[in-house]
Design a binder for these strands. Sequence first.
DNA 1: CTATTTTTGAATGATTTTAGTTGATTTATG
DNA 2: CATAAATCAACTAAAATCATTCAAAAATAG
Lengths: 250, 250
Amino acid sequence: MLTTERHEIILQLLKEKQTITLQDIIETTSASESTIRRDLTELEKQHKLERIHGGATLTERKLQEFSITEKSTKNLQEKIKIANYASSIVQDGDCIYLDAGTTTLQIIPYLQDKDVVVVTNGLTHLDSLIERGITTYLTGGLIKPKTSALIGQQAVQSLQNYRFDKCFLGVNGYHIDYGYTTPDPEEAHMKQIASSLAKEVYVLADSTKHNKISFAKINDLQEAQLITTEIEADDLSHLTKRTNVKVVNN
Amino acid sequence: MLTTERHEIILQLLKEKQTITLQDIIETTSASESTIRRDLTELEKQHKLERIHGGATLTERKLQEFSITEKSTKNLQEKIKIANYASSIVQDGDCIYLDAGTTTLQIIPYLQDKDVVVVTNGLTHLDSLIERGITTYLTGGLIKPKTSALIGQQAVQSLQNYRFDKCFLGVNGYHIDYGYTTPDPEEAHMKQIASSLAKEVYVLADSTKHNKISFAKINDLQEAQLITTEIEADDLSHLTKRTNVKVVNN
DNA sequence: CTATTTTTGAATGATTTTAGTTGATTTATG
DNA sequence: CATAAATCAACTAAAATCATTCAAAAATAG
């Protein structure tokens, strides 16, 4: 039997049963234990599944995909990929800032078991954070109804009370000359301040943000590491002259 | 059986029955007592449930989600009456502070057409406020998951940025000698500071709060106007010696 | 066809999970 | 309040699962 055949079978089994035991797989494929173990290791590396003691289970991401099949726009898939990578940067004990916005929102499920403290100005993040028992500080400030973000002088001031190990920002556009931009100057200002308070700054941007310029400038490219996906080779080579880019592929 | 399978079963049982015994779980999973204990310890660490002597129960938060309707109805009528009166105090142009809690929450519908600015530390208030297009500032601070209130040093500090025309507080008890009290010292502190920043302070308390003493003192009676309902005549006459009481009857 | 690489299965010892036991703690009952 | 019963955390040894290694088998390339 071909390796890829076995992989297909394993993934098929997973789709049906959500979690499977090693024995299950051995019986259906009649391959040896070691072989299946190797398969699982490989598939895990590809983020196709998660190994657990005694077998394997669907990734949280895949689980989401199933539960929101219809809603899963291409965009969301990208954001989840990016968020998944971003979460891998986060370490136990980190204090992190999560910008308001849908991209950073996707990071939260992956923070479940990490011992982190989160500061955010995004009201939409709260349910997800509280649900997972993550210690959360909210910045104060004026509620901007359209995006449910906290902004304004009070928001900026309350940020000053914190220092971050990592800062994750969403943007509306990034451009090699014009840097990172977003429509609302108030929100841009929040992002600037948050950046300045963090040891490491990461900008999360799906492919629709590439080469886009919005109204308010946040920073130049070189002031953050850009995490994106589905970018063309020559675009990438341009970008890498200015900043540290991580391209997430799966 | 896989560990995650058992966990799933346990959570499923919980969803159905709210609280379960260790024996229940042992019978349905046919795993040993020690194993189930380990599972419970693990799941508790993930905030998926709360261990109790002899079994487990849903987290207080989850429980609230389920039973919130019935639990609040008893006092809800009272609270609405009180809130209705409180809102009549509010004038166009006022800047008001709304304490976290279910009583102050009832004020919001009546603020619909008044041109006010609201500051609050209660996350549960947000939906209602935003929905009605009320300009809202949130204090910053640590999120206390149980009550969804913002507390702590950052919360207190961010309050200092404001001055209020009126301040509306909920309490857990008021007593002629011991004043206004509430269980959490952190929340009590927030209420103190908010009071000190307001021209007028109003405490909203339904009849279950009468003569009750809780752990942390907020203020003496005379430092606020008490708004309550369904109070007996001689109790009232005692109270009026110490503070300004408004009794709402309908 | 042979040499080289890749894949496979089996064996090893390490690690994780488990069930049963102990004595301590909590709850129920008279 | 004291006693008994139930529940609990901590420990131990056995079982299951795991990662690693190595040599044989299969696939690939020259």
